[in-house]
C-alpha cells in the first residue's frame, strides 16, 4: 500500500502549464529524490501533495487522505504530512521551543508539559537540544533548518516533503542538514525531497525522479539513474550538473 499516490496531476498558472500529467507512487520508507531544471515543476508538485497548491485535475492520496477541497480535509492531510522549505520559515517571534510546540498544542490539543517533552525530544533528534530557548535569528542557517525539520517532526508525520532545504545554506552548513535527513530516512520516514545535492541523492535515495517540462521524464534507482541514464534530456542534465 503506497503512502503517496499521484495520478495524472495537472496544474497551470494562467497559460503556463507547470504540471503536465505527473504520476508517482511512493511506498512506505522510501526516499524519493526529485531533480530537474529550475522551473520544471518540482516545487509545484511537492506543494500539491500537501495542498498548498490545488491541482487542476488528477488525483492525489497522501497517507490515506485523498486531496480534496475544503479546510477540514486539508488539515487532516496536513497533520500527516510535514513540509520543510528552502527559506526555513520559522516563526521569528517565537522561541525554538514555542515554534515546535505551537502545532502540537493547537492542532493536537496536547498539554503544555507534554508538548515541551515532544519539543525537547525532536530537538535532540536534530542535535539542537540546547537551543530550546533561543530565538530563530540567533541560530545559523543550518541550525534554523534543523529546527524547521524538528518542528515538522513534532507532528509525527507519516510523510515528509523537503523543497531544496539546503539551497539557501552556505556549503559548510549543508552537511549537518543532510545528515539529519539521512538519519530520518534510516529510521523509516517516507520522504520526498527536491534537491540539487546529487551526491546525496545517489547515496541516500531509494529512487531518483527527473522532472522535465512538467512531467516525470525518467526515474529509477540511483545506480541506474546516474550510471546509465536513458533519455538524452537526463543525460544532458546530468552532464551539466555533475
Amino acid at each position: 500500500m503506497p503512502v503517496v499516490v499521484a495520478e495524472d496531476v495537472r496544474k497551470s498558472f494562467g497559460s503556463l502549464t507547470v504540471l503536465d500529467g505527473v504520476s508517482l507512487s511512493v511506498s512506505e520508507g522510501e526516499l524519493i529524490a526529485v531533480i530537474g531544471r529550475s522551473g520544471s515543476g518540482k516545487s509545484t508538485f511537492l506543494r500539491c501533495l500537501n495542498g498548498l497548491e490545488t491541482p487542476d485535475s488528477g488525483q492525489i492520496i497522501v497517507a490515506g487522505h485523498a486531496l480534496a477541497p475544503g479546510e477540514e480535509a486539508l488539515r487532516a492531510l496536513r497533520q500527516d504530512v510535514g513540509m520543510v522549505f528552502q527559506s526555513y520559515n520559522l516563526f521569528p517571534h517565537l522561541t525554538v521551543g514555542k515554534n515546535i510546540e505551537l502545532a502540537p498544542r493547537l492542532v493536537k490539543k496536547i498539554g503544555k508539559a507534554e508538548a515541551a517533552d515532544i519539543a525537547r525530544s525532536v530537538l535532540a533528534e536534530v542535535g539542537l537540544a540546547e537551543k530550546y530557548d533561543a530565538f530563530p535569528e540567533q541560530l545559523s542557517g543550518g541550525q534554523q533548518q534543523r529546527v524547521a525539520i524538528a518542528r515538522s517532526l513534532a507532528m509525527r508525520p507519516k510523510v515528509m516533503l523537503f523543497d531544496e532545504v539546503t539551497s539557501a545554506l552556505d556549503p559548510e552548513l549543508t552537511g549537518e542538514v543532510l545528515k539529519v535527513m539521512e538519519g530520518l530516512s534510516r529510521s523509516g520516514m517516507t520522504m520526498l525531497l527536491v534537491t540539487h545535492e546529487m551526491a546525496f541523492a545517489r547515496k541516500a535515495a531509494s529512487r531518483v525522479v527527473y522532472f522535465h517540462q512538467g512531467r516525470i521524464h525518467e526515474q529509477g534507482p540511483p545506480e541506474e539513474f546516474f550510471g546509465a541514464p536513458k533519455t538524452p534530456e537526463l543525460q544532458q542534465f546530468l552532464g551539466a550538473v555533475l
Binding site: E71, R78, G82, L102, L106, S152, M155
Partner: peptide, 14 residues
C-alpha cells in the same frame, strides 16, 4: 506569505 504557508503546512486553522 511563507509564514502563512508554514502555518498552513502545520495544519493550523485559518
Amino acid at each position: 506569505r511563507q509564514q502563512w504557508e508554514a502555518a498552513s503546512s502545520l495544519a493550523l486553522k485559518p
